[in-house]
């Protein structure tokens, strides 16, 4: 069956990843009456077919070869080529994830077509997909159109409204037989380490407290952690801080770090460079503490304190505890 849009789904911890729900929501909106296919790759991925259909897929294309258990560029390329052929869709959406940012360009060049990476807005105009993406370190936005088919796009997490799950939706599940040609697998994963995630996951947190280079040293993150603890928040950091090894890379917020969009983002001793804002400007409310009243971060903030963090943080932690206690 030829579809209007193919969503390349991802499964995390046995469930459909949130980005997949977002892409299905976007696909439904963009498909203009056409049908939506959702690719599910990996052993047991098919167990999520029902969820994909409830979220808007008309057909779940399941590739459950054991060789696809973990991401490997070459093995996944073989699978995605077959799935792409099967879906015959003029538009393919990937998440801007570990997989999407590696595989989407590869697929585009293999098929001799174009790809728009890391889009935050999608619109169908005149039958072509218009993808808007931040560029120049978050200073500008560009709107691109892929002129050939398939039009491949990667979608940034938290940029689209996920569809509401509707368990009564009907759809078809198709198992796509994928033969993996081992001789075409050149890439081998020899080691994989997860970042030690403690407490609230940064990208899911409702409140994030981030610290920057202005803290002066890793030891001064104690006030960041304390405020985060008092608020049930996750801890974030600027790249300057991660580059200095004060904090792990997994805490980096920004263009090349995590994209967060909490209800409340508290930036302490962070200047607010465009590349940092690229990761947090989707926050509903930004609060900044910075001793420089002209710091860029205030331009994006709702509330600000222009003071030395070392004088503000302890009383702030106390006051926050009181407000929450009362």
């Amino acid at each position: 069956m030829a579809h209007a849009i193919l969503v390349v789904g991802e499964v995390a911890d046995g469930a459909l990843a949130p980005i997949t729900a977002e892409m299905l929501g976007a696909a439904k909106r963009l498909s203009d009456g056409g049908t939506v296919a959702c690719a599910l790759i990996g052993p047991d991925a098919g167990s999520n077919a029902g969820d994909a259909i409830a979220l808007g897929a008309d057909e779940a294309l399941v590739a459950d070869n054991p060789a696809l258990a973990e991401y490997n560029t070459d093995a996944y390329m073989q699978a995605i080529l077959k799935l792409t052929e099967q879906a015959a869709a003029p538009v393919i959406l990937f998440g801007q994830t570990n997989i999407g940012r590696d595989l989407a360009p590869r697929l585009a060049f293999r098929l001799g077509t174009g790809v728009i990476m890391d889009t935050v807005e999608l619109a169908m105009e005149g039958g072509r997909l218009h993808g808007t993406r931040p560029c120049y370190g978050g200073n500008a936005r560009a709107v691109h159109v892929v002129q050939s088919d398939p039009q491949i796009v990667t979608v940034r997490a938290k940029s689209q409204d996920p569809a509401e799950a509707d368990a009564s939706r009907q759809g078809q599940t198709t198992n796509v037989d994928i033969q993996i040609d081992d001789s075409a697998i050149r890439v081998k994963v020899t080691d994989r380490k997860g970042a030690a995630a403690e407490g609230v996951r940064l990208e899911d947190a409702d409140i994030v407290v981030s610290g920057g280079r202005g803290l002066g040293g890793p030891e001064h993150f104690d006030v960041i952690e304390e405020l985060a603890g008092a608020l049930g928040a996750a801890v974030g950091a600027s790249r300057a801080v991660c580059d200095l090894d004060w904090r792990p890379v997994s805490e980096q917020v920004g263009l090349t770090g995590k994209v967060v969009s909490p209800t409340l983002y508290i930036a302490v001793a962070i200047s607010g460079a465009s590349q940092h804002m690229a990761g947090c400007s989707g926050s509903k409310n930004i609060v900044a503490i910075n001793k420089d009243p002209d710091a860029n971060i205030f331009k994006a903030s709702r509330f600000g304190i222009a003071e030395d963090f070392s004088k503000v943080m302890k009383p702030l932690i106390e006051a926050v505890k009181q407000e929450r206690g009362s």
Partner: peptide
């Protein structure tokens, strides 16, 4: 070309 640029702008906060 496979990709065209339709618009480039500075987002306003």
């Amino acid at each position: 070309r496979k990709l065209t640029l339709e618009r480039l702008y500075v987002p306003q906060s």
